[in-house]
Nucleic acid binder design. Structure first.
Lengths: 338, 338
DNA sequence: ATATGAAATGTAAACGCTTACACAAAAGCA
DNA sequence: TGCTTTTGTGTAAGCGTTTACATTTCATAT
């Protein structure tokens, strides 16, 4: 049986209140007493029971992290950085992977709330649906604890968003490719999450601003059942066979970009001479292919740090900005010439 | 303020005991009463407070997952599968990333224990040190809750291990490469964790069983400060310049294998004609390079499923096997000829 | 109608902690 | 010296559940 504060108080010959005060670093306890209690705690290796503590404090010092799939390269990085930052501030992370199925979000949210987490972090733009009722669960959550959203924007009281201006980043990258002389660009994407929409918008805006006409015919969405890189590459091959010619591919993430590279290799198209490829997220995958992949970096680590900083501020009652936007930057490698 | 069981009991005109029984699916409550209570619960959207529940039940229905770095491709996959399986059994996951620094393990362990988790899962063989005192924290934990270890072996009461027989897998893969005619094989690794040692042992055993002599000169350890793929590739280049000739590289994981491929490409060595490369873990990286990487699959998903099954058994008081071993299998792709 | 046992419900103690409030000891001041 | 603060410590009431045990209700057999 685990020791309780009561056991410690007896051994140290003080009251449980004093032990509690020592534990919580209260200033109103004599140095000698503090030492006596600490010695006993160290000697017997006592650790306070967080559940009981949570009841008294009404806080678990735990943050619920929800993400669709923590094994996704991008999301895993985000979760990792968040966990690190939270830990540095004395918080634990309750992880909850919801999958990409939209329905379950509400259930998972209430489950995680019942653990009396101090806040909820939604990682990734999959958590923002397009309809109002689909997002009701966010509002419900925000009524109980602060809700932090990484990589998407949602305006509501007690909801704080940290994100990268994907639209602008994609706009700039597209423009740069276009102005380097590649005017026929294929846009390659899969799911249209919040940030997915923004990226596509950025691409379209850039193309439209150059009065491009046929780019709409060069927008290629991979169907949901193409999960493997090979399947994606093959799908792209079929699409390309019927589409107008193109000299560049902009992919919505690095994995899709790798699929694009595979497509080129299967069809004897040389990169970057005949085809230029651009990815998104600047993940480790950029280094794994040949040639190495040019990609857009969304400053994930900086974003997570800002998120946790904002969260800590909110939890300590400070007024904090509801929306913090970072800008992406193009990391040029060898799949592009510009 | 959140609703309590007490509020519900008043609205439903029953006692809190009855509400609690409904919540816990006790058989001794009349159907009509159950319905009445459930209706109120649904109507007012009550969720029980897990902390309070933990105090009564002495269980949080939460499992602590410790891993060095949840953004590592392999570990992230493991964490994801674990989380999924645990969720399916009604448990939440408290994630704790310890980093690779050995000292901190003990502190993190006691932190996570204070949350009254029902068990602890150590993900990855980094958690097994080579000295007895370094592993004392595992024994301490096992005194309080079951400890599950994924990917390493540690014999102790209340400690359960699920792993892949890395030594054997590596032995077989090495033998297969050797017998296909590649007798000079370079072994490329970084950290010597528990499974890292096993893999190296497997390689050595296979080479020794063929009376190879110079393989010891072909064992290349990347120093800890080489974190990027490029740095690893460059290090390998320098090593190769001074080492005997070799026709194959066996890497301790896929990322190292990618570095090996990069090394070959930088030096104009063709794969697989002049150099064959073999990775470990069969991660997504195997599909990202050209040619695609042959790799050893350690059945991670099966392992995690077995782990959670064992854990659930242990938690429900059943006798469970303390060690479950799976065997790895070679997935042949294009970086090898055999 | 009455006794009997089973089924359903209620009562109250326990879980381990925090903290408002009460109190005692020590210190400062006239 | 006695009076007032200040400082340190203790007492006890919560926090929201679970559950053993007590009690009521209800059906069945007598």
């Amino acid at each position: 049986m685990s020791l309780t504060i009561y056991d410690i108080s007896k051994k140290a010959e003080v009251s449980i209140a004093t032990v509690s005060r020592v534990l919580n670093g209260s200033p109103k306890v004599k140095e000698a007493t503090r030492k006596k209690v600490m010695d006993i705690i160290d000697e017997y290796g006592y650790t306070p029971n967080s559940s009981a503590r949570a009841m008294g404090l009404k806080s678990m010092k735990t943050i619920g992290i929800m993400c669709a799939d923590s094994s996704d390269i991008f999301l895993a990085k985000a979760v990792y950085y968040l966990e690190q930052n939270l830990q540095a501030h004395g918080y634990e992370s309750l992880l909850c992977c919801t999958g990409y199925n939209a329905d379950s979000k509400k259930n998972y949210a209430s489950l995680i709330l019942s653990k009396k987490v101090d806040a909820i972090i939604l990682v990734g733009s999959h958590f923002i649906g397009s309809s109002e009722e689909e997002n009701q669960y966010i509002i419900d959550c925000s009524a109980k604890v602060p809700v932090m959203i990484l990589n998407a924007s949602f305006r509501h009281d007690n909801v704080y968003c940290i994100l990268c201006d994907d639209m602008n980043a994609m706009y700039r990258a597209t423009t740069e490719m276009y102005e380097s002389g590649i005017t026929d660009i294929l846009y390659f994407y899969d799911v249209l999450s919040y940030s997915g929409r923004k990226k596509l918008d950025g691409f379209r805006m850039a193309m439209q601003s150059h009065h491009s006409k046929k780019h709409e015919e060069l927008i290629c969405q991979v169907p949901a059942d193409c999960r493997s890189i090979d399947a994606m590459a093959d799908y792209l091959g079929k699409f390309a066979a019927k589409a107008p010619k193109f000299g560049g591919i902009i992919a919505a993430d690095d994995q899709l970009a790798i699929a694009a590279i595979k497509y080129a290799q299967k069809n004897g198209i040389s990169i970057p001479d005949e085809l230029q490829v651009l990815g998104y997220n600047n993940s480790i995958l950029t280094h794994c292919c040949t040639p190495e992949l040019t990609s857009i970096d969304s400053q994930l680590e900086t974003q997570t740090r800002a998120l946790v900083k904002t969260l800590i501020g909110v939890l300590s009652g400070q007024e904090m900005p509801q929306k913090t936007v970072f800008s992406g930057s193009l990391i040029k490698r060898s799949t592009t010439n510009f």
